[in-house]
Design a protein around this nucleic acid. Structure first.
Lengths: 329, 329
DNA sequence: CTGAAAGCGCTTACAG
DNA sequence: CTGAAAGCGCTTACAG
């Protein structure tokens, strides 16, 4: 069916060995210029492309790096991460493909279809999946959201810091009774848990009461209910899971007749464009996506080379202060 | 290194043939129950997984379906599409992997690493890429944004309709001088072009002037400039590329002291949660994502089976009317 | 009911 | 400078 190296060999009047030497520019081999030209021309004319399956079988490993995502909604952060990773790895002849690991399908089904050299996991793997990958000789690079692990194959971006930063900013602005606006989107539960933990610990640190926790579903009804609860509790500042939730919080507070930032301050996470356009403009926490992406790519390359990964940059997140969290007068 | 079927055969005291028959439940073969049990147990104990490369080489085709995306930002629409597709194909033993085809890297590099059975393209392929895939025996399923092609391997979701619907809605609400809010994000240029074409053609149809076109970059400055230009031109309604741009339009109009919907009506596309939360709530065009996903999945399955694809549902898009486009009193 | 053998397409010692 | 041969791990006619 498809063109094989044998076809190229026959058409060029040489052996498959010679075809392989020419096409792979094999270091040891010296091929006469005439032969090389002839082989190259034939390959181009026939549209020859080597069989990935055969190469992988022969070599015992492929040039594929597989990124395994949980069922997170893909946003700009992840998008940039994947793009950057693909660019860096392409420079070394590696292809990056992404598996959107929705729901309950076991990873094992994948290995029937594809044989990656390395798997980059964006959430913890099941024990059995890990075992299967190790047995199959697949290298595994992991990521974590808490940052207290020394496993060198693990990239960590501590979500906890984000929550801490939000609280520090709000407290510095004279606020002392905090609310937390989480999300009912279960796909984000892992992120939310760590960010909330950061909020809690920083509240304790600052000597103020723990946050009044509410989970929103991005409807006006749920945002208004949350706002009412916060008013009830005397909340004067809300840290939101992200900007999307933060914008819902603004809407809910408005609905309940609470003024931002006079009555309540609000801060989100991500610094999406819509944050700056809100009324009032929404404060946020910038994630330094480009630098996170560079860090992840460097860690993956280090794992591929079997060397120590770079240490994590520790000033990734910064507060973007806008009117929604202006200090108490 | 890894466990092979020969290992399982040796440990079970049978031939590789028998191992293959048992593990693949080969129809013709009848294996004694004792042997079957023994082989299964050994395979499980050893953690045997067949080599995808060897299976693919042997079979001449893999169980991999590759989705090739242009460098679009991934949003909820695409996300749902991919999830749905993966689910439907998993039921037939096919794995779905995604290639984020950023920028200029030629697709050909991919075939060195991976050998898909089918490629689902979300934008037009380069001629040479198409040729290479055909030569490699890869089945190609395409998608288009204009819907006037009868190629059965092509899934089309006509963006043009979206623009038409927006204009119909605005005109029905008594508006007669339209603006179009595009985006400076070049990754979306293809979508924007078709939606704008729909707006243009429907304006002609309705006998009103062509739209006053402006491209926004999601900053207040650019939104305000656009708003000023529209006021200058006497625009009384704006169709936005999507809700994100629509929200920027609302901000720009507010900044310029124009009242929505009294002075200017606004409508976006996508019906994201933030649209309903805006002040005033933003009208939009719903994309019926679930049904689009089902349609794409059905087309892909049809292509795999070599049968006629289903015809496109033609009522995918519907206007969600909110305060931002309330009729002229 | 089970096994020995061929062959998928490639690369790479090994010979010439 | 070039070619014949082996072998990666699998499946499947073909024999028994």
């Amino acid at each position: 069916m498809a063109v094989t190296s044998a076809d190229v060999a026959r058409e060029s009047g040489v052996s498959r060995t010679t075809v392989s030497y020419v096409l792979n520019e094999t270091p040891g081999a010296t091929i006469s210029d005439a032969t090389r030209r002839r082989v190259l021309a034939t390959a181009a004319r026939l549209g020859y492309a080597p069989s990935a399956a055969a190469r992988t079988l022969r070599a015992g490993r492929s040039d594929l790096v597989l990124c395994v995502l949980p069922n997170w909604p893909i946003g700009p952060v992840l998008d940039t991460l994947l793009e950057r990773l693909a660019d860096e790895l392409a420079a070394r002849g590696l292809a990056v493909l992404v598996h959107h690991g929705r729901g309950a399908r076991p990873l094992a089904d994948l290995w029937r279809a594809v044989q990656p050299r390395t798997v980059v996991g964006f959430a913890a793997f099941a024990e059995e999946d890990l075992r299967a990958m190790r047995l199959a000789g697949i290298q595994v690079v992991g990521t974590r959201m808490d940052g207290d692990d020394d496993d060198p194959t693990i990239v960590s971006v501590p979500q906890v810091r984000i929550g801490r930063l939000q609280v520090q900013h709000l407290v510095a602005g004279g606020r002392s009774r905090l609310g937390w606006a989480g999300t009912t989107d279960t796909r984000l539960a892992e992120f939310a848990r760590h960010r909330l933990a950061g909020v809690r610990s920083e509240c304790a640190q600052a000597g103020i009461a723990p946050p009044v926790v509410r989970e929103l579903d991005l409807t006006m009804a749920s945002a208004a209910r949350a706002a009412a609860a916060w008013r009830e509790a005397g909340v004067d500042a809300v840290a939101a899971y992200n900007d999307e939730v933060g914008l819902a919080v603004l809407a809910g507070l408005r609905e309940q007749g609470l003024a931002v930032p006079q009555d309540v301050a609000v801060i989100g996470v991500d610094d999406v464009p819509a944050a700056a356009l809100a009324e009032p403009p929404l404060s946020s926490v910038d994630q330094a996506i480009e630098r996170q992406a560079a860090y992840l790519a460097a860690c993956t390359l280090a794992a591929l080379d079997g060397v120590q990964p770079p240490s994590r940059p520790d000033d990734l997140h910064t507060v973007v202060a806008r009117a929604s969290s202006a200090p108490r007068r």
